[in-house]
Amino acid sequence: MESILCEDSPRQMLATLRTRLLVMFAHAGIALDESGKALSQDDAARALAVQEGDAVIDELENEIDELCLRVMARLQPVAGDLRFVVAALRMVVDLERIGDEAASIAERVLLLHELPIKEEDMRRLREMFAQARAAFAQAADAFREEDAEAARSLRAAEDDAMQAEVALLQALMPMPGEDGRVSGDPRAAIHAMLIVRSLTRVWRRSANIAEQVYFMRHGASLKHELVR
């Protein structure tokens, strides 16, 4: 049904901003899912598609930035509307970087394509991918439902991500065995470790997004609460 609101009415502009953010969340989520499948299935075609799709996320960032500027200039929002626009400006940066990390994982998949990777290492990567993906899904759900408590429950995600990263990097590090020989291909290990770095960033940026959802609802910073 055609909207009865004129395109540039204040409510319509804010509704459009929210819709475009949800679209960007969806694109970033799909990019992550596809990069994960490309990794698990060693699927080069899928990895290439993820890299090409990153341009759409970049365009959405520009579009939402522009929309935020128009909302600020034309509506001069206050209170909850103002917090929403400020949070949107911050969240698009995190979403765009999450898209970049998905593209970066895809690039590593292409570079790993010809290299042998131990099944145990691949299992560990899949586990960490699932955790980072779950954190992103939780942040996206918190934004969609405007659920500050769900956002708050992600406040430990930064620490979780750091701990997982350290544990996985130690596990992936090629170490000489008792016979003095290093098992596995060191090149594959380096690509796997760079994937771990990307997943850590996805996880931490999901925590950033959750902080913005909390700020939108309460006008307070979870980050500062943690510092205290």
Binding site: P10, P77, V78, A79, G80, D81, L82, R83, G219
Partner: peptide
Amino acid sequence: IFTRPAQKQTEDYITG
């Protein structure tokens, strides 16, 4: 008041 008003009526009024 203009960033995080306590009352919903205030929020509704200042945001139109």
